[in-house]
Computed example of a mutant assay.
Amino acid sequence: MRPTGWGLGLILGLGVLMSAGAQAAASGKDTLAFLQQVQSAARSLDYSGIYVYQQGHLLQASRLVHVVDGTGEHERLEMLDGAPRECMRENGVEQCLQPEHKIVVIQPARSDHFPGLLLGNEQAIVQHYDWLPSSRTYRIAGRNCSVSELKARDRLRYSYRICTDLKTHLLLKSQTLDPAGHLVDQVAFSSIRMGADVKPGSLASQWDTRDWRLLTETSTPIDLNARGWRFSLPAGFRPVAELSRQIGPDHAVDQMVVSDGLSAISIFIETFDPKRDQTIRQGDLRQGAVNIYRMRLASYWLTAVGEVPARTVRDLAHAVQYVPQAAH
């Protein structure tokens, strides 16, 4: 899931529509049905287009191609701004190309990028968000879409204002709103083709990678509790993964991922290295909707990263405990 011409008009337009036309919160059953419909469109339809992400003055455009056939999902995501980068997904495996370094990284596929919406834990969504549908429509990338809002019931998470295609239910635009209702970031298709207009040949990469270096990201499931770590999670967030990632020959990072169904937080744990880590700054960092909090805990670095308000990641990090005897 941008204040240039059409973007600014959309921000103002959607805000007026929601404030004037938002209905009472839909039932939990209706909310889940709607979310599953939107997620199904992202996973099952053929579509291609360019979408633009904005945070503050930063604009980033990406070209996305998504095709489903008898062998499953196929996708190509190409970054159009900055250093060239391209990721190609075949079902659960993803190859990411870094042309400037002539590297291909093979890793488990991510499914949390636009226009996907759900991250799991659907019941938590019903408990912590209200779906406010609207009878009003808007126009995005030449297609009519329906405006609605997923409004957080507390200040631990963001709210989302979205516009979904009237015919296919595909997510065309998503705006992230902070607890005060201010726009944090947004992403939207600026052009899109669907169905038979999407050519399977557009999945092919433009890069010849035959002499490139191949790297495989390795990760191993772990039990952080058995290693002595104790977590007090924000309301509605549940663990979805616990992994140990090998970053380099002598550098491993443990990671816990928690989610409330719409947003996710990662907690990274790595051994403190006096030679490597002396210059790392503790405290808050922010990149658009993503807030980061880093702190030293015993002989470890602890970093919480998530698309949630800064207070949420800060409180989560400070609630982590390490019990050495439990690890032994």
Rank of each mutant, 00 (worst) to 15 (best):
V290I: 15
G261E: 06
M256W: 06
S263M: 09
G248C: 01
S259W: 04
A298H: 09
D273G: 02
T279C: 04
I265R: 08
F268Q: 04
D250F: 02
L285E: 08
M256A: 04
I269D: 08
D254E: 15
T279S: 07
I269F: 06
G288L: 07
T271K: 03
A264L: 14
T279F: 14
A289I: 07
R296C: 01
S263F: 10
F268W: 09
H251K: 06
T271R: 14
R294V: 13
R296P: 01
A289F: 07
L285M: 10
R294H: 02
D284T: 03
D250W: 03
P274M: 15
D284N: 10
V290H: 02
L262V: 05
Q282P: 00
G283I: 02
I292V: 11
G248Y: 00
F268T: 09
Q282R: 07
G283H: 04
F268H: 09
Q278W: 10
T271I: 03
L297S: 03
P274R: 12
Q255V: 15
K275V: 04
D260Y: 05
S263L: 11
R281D: 05
I292F: 12
D250Y: 00
M295P: 05
T279M: 11
G283V: 05
D254L: 02
S263G: 08
N291D: 06
I267H: 11
G283P: 09
Y293G: 08
P249I: 09
V258C: 12
A298M: 01
L297K: 15
S266M: 11
R276E: 14
V290K: 10
I269K: 01
V257D: 06
T279N: 10
Q255N: 07
D273E: 03
A252H: 09
P249H: 14
I267K: 08
H251F: 12
L262I: 03
A298Q: 08
R296A: 06
M295G: 09
Q282S: 12
L262T: 02
I267M: 13
L297N: 01
D260I: 07
V253Q: 06
I267S: 02
